[in-house]
Lab assay of single mutants.
Amino acid sequence: MPVRRGHVAPQNTFLDTIIRKFEGQSRKFIIANARVENCAVIYCNDGFCELCGYSRAEVMQRPCTCDFLHGPRTQRRAAAQIAQALLGAEERKVEIAFYRKDGSCFLCLVDVVPVKNEDGAVIMFILNFEVVMEKDMVGSPAHDTNHRGPPTSWLAPGRAKTFRLKLPALLALTARESSVRSGGAGGAGAPGAVVVDVDLTPAAPSSESLALDEVTAMDNHVAGLGPAEERRALVGPGSPPRSAPGQLPSPRAHSLNPDASGSSCSLARTRSRESCASVRRASSADDIEAMRAGVLPPPPRHASTGAMHPLRSGLLNSTSDSDLVRYRTISKIPQITLNFVDLKGDPFLASPTSDREIIAPKIKERTHNVTEKVTQVLSLGADVLPEYKLQAPRIHRWTILHYSPFKAVWDWLILLLVIYTAVFTPYSAAFLLKETEEGPPATECGYACQPLAVVDLIVDIMFIVDILINFRTTYVNANEEVVSHPGRIAVHYFKGWFLIDMVAAIPFDLLI
Rank of each mutant, 00 (worst) to 15 (best):
S318N: 12
S55H: 07
T74I: 01
C49R: 03
Y99W: 01
K344N: 06
S179C: 07
R242F: 14
S55V: 01
L155Q: 05
S320C: 13
L165T: 14
R176A: 05
P258D: 13
P72N: 03
L51F: 05
K166E: 09
S284Q: 05
V122L: 12
P240M: 15
S182C: 12
C44Y: 01
S272D: 06
V122T: 12
D287W: 09
L343G: 15
H368D: 05
A156T: 15
C49S: 13
P114F: 01
P249G: 05
C66N: 01
L311F: 08
S179N: 09
E274I: 05
G158T: 06
S153T: 15
A121L: 06
D213A: 13
S264L: 14
P10W: 15
I19W: 01
P251T: 09
E95F: 05
S320D: 15
W154L: 13
V195G: 05
H70Y: 10
P310F: 09
A185H: 14
A79K: 08
G345E: 06
S272L: 07
G103F: 06
A172V: 01
S379E: 03
N317R: 02
G294T: 12
G186Y: 11
S255G: 07
D219H: 11
K166H: 07
D67Y: 03
V131D: 15
P72L: 01
L248C: 15
T162G: 14
M124E: 01
A290R: 04
L165F: 14
S140R: 07
R181Q: 07
N369R: 08
R301F: 01
S179K: 15
V8A: 14
I358Y: 11
F29M: 01
T145D: 15
N146S: 15
A282P: 07
R312P: 14
P205T: 05
D144S: 14
A185T: 09
L173F: 14
R281A: 15
L69K: 01
Q247L: 07
G6T: 13
A282G: 10
E58P: 01
S379R: 05
A350F: 10
Q11F: 12
T367N: 07
L256A: 07
T375F: 14
Y99M: 01
G139M: 14
P205R: 05
V279E: 13
L324G: 07
D102P: 01
N12T: 11
L311T: 14
L296V: 15
D144T: 15
V131H: 13
V113T: 08
G306E: 12
S261D: 12
S104E: 14
C108E: 01
P157L: 14
D119S: 08
G294I: 08
F22V: 07
T375A: 06
I359C: 07
H254A: 12
I126A: 11
N146H: 05
L311S: 08
V194T: 06
F98W: 03
F29T: 01
D102I: 01
V194W: 01
T174G: 15
P227S: 15
A169S: 12
N317Q: 07
V8G: 14
G187H: 06
A204H: 01
G88N: 13
L173W: 14
M218Q: 13
S283Y: 05
G184S: 06
N38V: 01
R76Y: 11
G262Y: 15
L212K: 06
A223H: 14
S322A: 09
K364E: 12
E91K: 08
F14G: 07
K362W: 08
N45H: 01
P10H: 10
V279R: 07
T375P: 05
T152S: 09
F14V: 12
A79S: 07
G53S: 01
L324R: 11
H147G: 05
S320F: 11
G306R: 12
T329N: 14
L212T: 14
V325A: 14
M137P: 07
A80L: 12
A185N: 07
T319Y: 08
A203F: 06
T74F: 01
R76V: 13
T13E: 09
C105T: 15
S351R: 06
Q11H: 13
Q84S: 13
S351N: 15
L210N: 06
L107Q: 06
P258K: 03
R301A: 12
K93I: 08
L343I: 10
T270K: 04
R164M: 06
S179G: 09
F29Y: 12
Y99R: 01
G6D: 07
S179H: 10
A223R: 14
T270C: 12
P151K: 15
G246C: 10
S264Y: 08
R20K: 07
D321Q: 11
H302G: 14
R366P: 07
K135G: 10
L385T: 11
G345I: 04
C276D: 14
G381Y: 13
H7W: 11
L316F: 07
D199Q: 05
L256C: 15
S275Q: 09
T17H: 08
A79R: 10
S239I: 07
R77V: 15
P245I: 07
G236M: 04
D136Q: 11
L87A: 15
D259P: 05
A78K: 05
S354A: 14
